[in-house]
Structures are given as structure tokens and as C-alpha cells.
């Protein structure tokens, strides 16, 4: 753990292409349960996580991965929020590939990040925001790398093993940002039809690239729409159904993180979570896992811990913010 070398499986575009060629690309119905969808995740998988920081995080899918007690995972996400802390504290993750990790400026440097990375329990492989975005994009394009002008001259080069290449036309040195082909993509979207054609409102983040780069795509959606609705506005589809392996209908599937226009992140919840960590250290996250992850059997039971009043308030705020 922690050696600064690229894992060839991450950028092997030939193997990644073969995996996609070999899988069913069906236009069949994809609707299923969280348990069934997440049953496709294996120990040791490299997981590309959609959304960014506390925006459109696929928390219902991620909670189910923890409930199924997967181990040795790698999480790849541009800005990693407290979902990364939960995976660290649960012992589910051995490496996090990210550009930044903490909850957000008002909550300070994550004490959980510090604990697990400083003790060497979890390796944090840091790429720049754009470089990690281009890793997903190279994966989405099916190419081994993309030339770029970023991340050069920094010590980040040695962390993830970024190489340079000489431009065959001008002779300049450019970064050769390696593709990242995740085993599994997890996305939470605003709406999808039952065949998995997905629509996203507001910030697209990197979801469309992550879905194309991954071998297996698991999606949760706030709303199920009709096939007719998809066909009426095909320009709104950002992930086509044939990419999607499993789709789960999960209203408030990012809560307490935000979903653009539908509900605001619950900052009070973040504050309570951080206060508990301030009081009792990393053990507080163990308690949180018991209460919010392992305890409530269903996502609906989980949401009951927040209460309908709180969710209605967050929904009202989101409408005001995007009016």
C-alpha cells in the first residue's frame, strides 16, 4: 500500500475495451433493489464515484456497499467528502484517489482523513482536479492517456506516477494523463426511465465520463420517468441505458448531501457529525456507522433518522436557491 506507482489495470485500455465488448449492452429494464444492484461490487474493486464533494453523492448505493461489508476497495472521486470518511472508518477502503478530501471549508481539515492517512492505514493518491477529470475522460474515450498542460513541475507528479510525453508535432513536453477505467461507477441522477436512460439537472460534474469509463454502472435516481418522456427530450439524456447495469429508484438518495434543485445539503448534520468527532475522535465515526449505516435496514428507515420535517425544509431551500 502506498507505493507511488500506477496500477496498469487502471489505464490498460485494451483490457478495458475487451471488458466492455464482452458485457451485455442491453436495452432491457434495469430497475432493481439496492441490495441486488450493489451485489455486483466485489472486494478489491476500483470504484468511480459520481457527484462532487457533497453534491449528488450516490450515498444510498455507497451505504449499501458498506452494509455488504466489501473490503479492499479503491474510491476515485474528485473531491471526497465524509462518504470517504465512512469508508475509511468501516475498513472498506485501502486507497482513495482524489484531488481534495474534507467536508468543506467551514468544517476545517478532516480529522478522519488525518487519522487514517497519517497512520498509513489508507493511502491517499492525489491528482489535480483537472488531471483526475481527464483520467475519467480518457477512460470514457477508450484511449490510454490524454495530453495536458497541467500538474507538471509539481510534487504531485511523483505521487500517482504521472509521466510526460514529447509532442510529436511541436517537440514540447506535455503531461500524459493516464486513463482511469474503474471496475464500477456509482451515480445518483435526477431522473431515469426504467431502461436506465439518465438525466441530470444543474451541475453535470464528471458523471457522464465516469459511466463511460467504468465496466459496471450502478445508478440510483430520484425519479422514474416514462420511456415517452425520455424520447420527447433525448437531448437531456447524459447516460444512455445500454451503459447501465442496474438502476434503483431512491428518492433523497444523496441525503444529507445535496441534489441540485431538489434538496440542499444538511449543514447542521455535518456540524453534529464534526462535533462528535471533536469529542470522541475517530470512534465517533464507528458510532455513526452503527446508527446510520448498519442499523437502519432500508434507505427509508435511514431517512427516518433525519425526519420528514428536515427533508422538507432542505427541499424548500433548494427551490429557493435555484429559482
Amino acid at each position: 500500500m502506498g507505493d507511488p506507482h500506477l496500477n496498469p489495470a487502471e489505464y490498460d485500455f485494451i483490457a478495458a475495451r475487451r471488458r466492455v465488448e464482452a458485457k451485455a449492452k442491453s436495452a432491457a429494464e434495469k430497475l432493481t433493489s439496492l441490495e441486488d444492484a450493489v451485489g455486483r461490487v466485489k472486494d478489491g474493486d476500483q470504484i468511480g464515484v459520481g457527484g462532487c464533494l457533497f453534491s449528488r453523492t450516490p450515498l444510498a448505493l455507497m451505504r449499501e456497499i458498506l452494509r455488504q461489508r466489501r473490503r479492499g476497495l479503491t474510491l476515485a472521486r474528485n473531491l471526497t467528502c465524509n462518504e470517504g470518511e465512512l469508508f475509511m472508518a468501516a475498513g472498506a477502503v485501502s486507497r482513495v484517489t482524489t484531488a481534495w478530501m474534507s467536508i468543506g471549508l467551514p468544517w476545517g481539515v478532516s480529522k478522519i482523513l488525518r487519522h487514517y492517512v497519517e497512520t498509513g492505514a489508507v493511502a491517499l493518491e492525489e491528482w489535480s482536479h483537472l488531471a483526475l477529470g481527464l483520467r475519467f475522460r480518457a477512460g470514457a474515450m477508450g484511449v490510454p492517456f490524454l495530453p495536458a498542460l497541467t500538474m507538471l513541475g509539481s510534487d504531485l507528479v511523483g505521487v500517482g506516477g504521472l509521466k510526460t510525453v514529447q509532442d510529436p508535432y511541436t517537440g514540447e513536453t506535455v503531461a500524459a494523463v493516464p486513463a482511469l477505467f474503474p471496475d464500477v461507477a456509482l451515480l445518483h441522477v435526477h431522473r431515469a426511465d426504467r431502461f436506465g436512460n439518465c438525466q441530470i439537472d444543474g451541475y453535470p460534474h464528471m458523471d457522464a465520463d465516469i459511466a463511460r469509463a467504468a465496466t459496471t454502472v450502478l445508478v440510483s435516481t430520484e425519479e422514474i420517468i416514462s420511456e415517452e418522456e425520455t424520447r420527447r427530450y433525448p437531448d437531456r439524456t447524459v447516460v444512455p441505458g445500454f451503459l447501465v447495469d442496474a438502476l434503483v429508484h431512491v428518492p433523497f438518495g444523496s441525503f444529507p448531501h445535496e441534489c441540485y434543485g431538489l434538496y440542499e445539503a444538511d449543514y447542521d448534520h455535518f456540524a453534529e457529525y464534526c462535533a462528535a468527532i471533536d469529542r470522541s475522535g475517530p470512534a465517533a465515526v464507528g458510532d455513526y456507522l452503527e446508527r446510520y449505516v448498519y442499523g437502519p435496514p432500508t434507505w427509508s428507515d435511514y431517512l427516518d433518522l433525519f425526519g420528514g420535517e428536515r427533508m422538507a425544509l432542505q427541499a424548500k431551500r433548494a427551490k429557493e436557491l435555484t429559482r
Binding site: 473531491l79 482524489t98 484531488a99 481534495w100 478530501m101 474534507s102 481539515v109 478532516s110 482523513l113 488525518r114 492517512v117 497519517e118 491517499l124 492525489e126 489535480s128 482536479h129 483537472l130 488531471a131 497541467t150 500538474m151 509539481s154 504531485l156
Partner: peptide
């Protein structure tokens, strides 16, 4: 000794 949050978009 101390892990900080990281680059985010600063490097870019």
C-alpha cells in the same frame, strides 16, 4: 506528519 486536504483545483 500532517495530512492537508490537497490540491483541489489549485494546481490547475
Amino acid at each position: 506528519k500532517v495530512r492537508l486536504p490537497g490540491t483541489g483545483g489549485a494546481n490547475d
